[in-house]
Structures are given as structure tokens and as C-alpha cells.
């Protein structure tokens, strides 16, 4: 695989279908700025040889991403990133990621374990969703 091309991980026990794992990893790489417009994705053969998944799984993932307008297949050349997914640009993600990182460390220091942090996050999301619904 050439420079700048991402590699995929496929976990047979993730509860998420393998094709969707690839779709999510491409979307994630686009959001985080790992992949940029014009970058080439690995070929089906390269993915299959590296992670031993069904070729149709990779084709299905690429079709889905193409349908979403994120990538495009250029005949005889390969598959390339066409656009970023809707939503804030990669730098917003990395900025929020940094502040979340600080917050999680603070929560850990205060004695919260992962389960406590997750339930706090879930509760907060629910409270905010409810408040926004009330306004709307």
C-alpha cells in the first residue's frame, strides 16, 4: 500500500457487520483529517490480503461510501476520496477531542470509572435532548 493510505481493522465479534466497520473507519478517518480529498483508498485486493475479509464486504463498503458521495471509483485508477462527510471540519473534532481528553482525566482523578463516566455522559445527553425538545 502506498503512502497516506489507511489500513482497516475488522473484528469478527464486534456486533457490527464487517462492511459497516470499514464504512465507519473511512468516515472516522475523514472526520479526523487522516484522509483528505484526493487521497487514494486501498484496492479491494489489498484490503482482503491484509485483513482476510470477503472481497464483497469491501466492495459493499466502498459502494455505500460512494453512494454517500464521500468516495469515487475512477476506472483503471482506483478509489479516491471525493468529499468530507457533513458536519464540522476535522479541526473542530480534534479541538473537542482535546477538551474531552482533559475532562476524562479530571473525572478519572475524581475516582469515576468508565461505567460511571459513560452513564454520566448518557444522562447529560438525555437531559439536553429533553430540554431541547421542550423548547422546540
Amino acid at each position: 500500500m502506498g503512502d497516506g493510505v489507511i489500513s482497516f481493522r475488522v473484528n469478527g465479534r464486534a456486533g457490527v457487520p464487517p462492511y459497516l466497520q470499514i464504512v465507519q473507519q473511512v468516515r472516522q478517518a475523514l472526520r479526523m483529517g487522516v484522509l483528505e480529498v484526493g487521497d487514494q483508498l486501498p484496492t479491494v485486493r489489498e484490503v482482503v490480503a491484509a485483513v482476510a475479509v470477503n472481497p464483497n464486504t469491501v466492495l459493499k463498503a466502498y459502494r455505500e461510501l460512494e453512494h454517500e458521495g464521500l468516495i469515487e471509483a475512477r476506472a483503471g485508477h482506483g478509489t479516491f476520496v471525493r468529499a468530507l462527510p457533513p458536519g464540522p471540519p476535522p479541526r473542530t473534532f480534534s479541538r473537542l477531542g482535546h477538551s474531552l481528553d482533559r475532562w476524562v482525566r479530571e473525572a478519572r482523578a475524581a475516582g469515576l470509572d468508565n461505567e460511571a463516566i459513560e452513564s454520566l455522559l448518557k444522562g447529560t445527553l438525555q437531559a439536553i435532548d429533553t430540554a431541547e425538545e421542550d423548547i422546540a
Binding site: 479491494v44 485486493r45 482482503v48 490480503a49 491484509a50 485483513v51 482476510a52 475479509v53 470477503n54 472481497p55 469491501v58
Partner: peptide, 13 residues
């Protein structure tokens, strides 16, 4: 894993 990679690659080709 290596065996399955050889197999899936043959199918891809």
C-alpha cells in the same frame, strides 16, 4: 489468518 488471506485474495483476483 494467513490461510484465509490467501483464500480471500484469490477470490478478489
Amino acid at each position: 489468518r494467513h490461510f484465509l488471506a490467501t483464500l480471500t485474495e484469490a477470490v478478489a483476483v
